[in-house]
Amino acid sequence: MSLETEHYCPDCESDVTFYRAASTHVHLGEKVKWHCTECDYGFVKINGNVDTSEA
Rank of each mutant, 00 (worst) to 15 (best):
M1D: 08
M1H: 03
M1N: 09
M1C: 05
M1K: 02
S2V: 00
S2N: 09
S2Q: 06
L3I: 09
L3K: 13
E4K: 13
E4V: 10
E6S: 00
E6K: 08
Y8C: 02
C9Y: 07
C9D: 00
P10R: 01
P10L: 03
P10M: 03
D11C: 04
D11E: 15
C12N: 11
E13S: 14
E13D: 15
E13Y: 11
E13K: 15
S14W: 00
S14R: 10
D15L: 00
V16M: 05
V16D: 05
T17S: 01
F18V: 05
F18S: 00
R20T: 13
R20G: 09
A21G: 10
A21C: 09
A21M: 13
A22I: 00
A22P: 01
T24L: 12
T24I: 08
H25C: 06
H25L: 07
V26K: 05
H27W: 00
L28Y: 07
L28I: 05
L28D: 08
L28R: 09
G29L: 02
G29P: 06
G29V: 05
E30V: 15
K31F: 11
V32T: 15
V32R: 08
K33R: 15
K33F: 11
W34C: 04
W34D: 06
W34R: 06
H35W: 12
C36Y: 13
C36M: 13
C36I: 11
T37S: 10
T37N: 12
T37R: 13
E38D: 15
E38L: 09
D40S: 15
D40W: 05
Y41M: 09
Y41R: 13
G42D: 01
G42P: 01
G42Q: 01
F43Q: 05
F43S: 04
F43K: 03
V44F: 03
K45C: 05
I46Q: 07
I46V: 15
G48E: 05
G48N: 03
G48A: 06
N49I: 14
N49S: 06
N49W: 04
N49H: 09
V50N: 02
V50M: 04
D51L: 08
T52D: 01
S53R: 12
S53F: 01
E54P: 03
E54M: 09
E54F: 06
A55G: 08
A55H: 08
A55V: 09
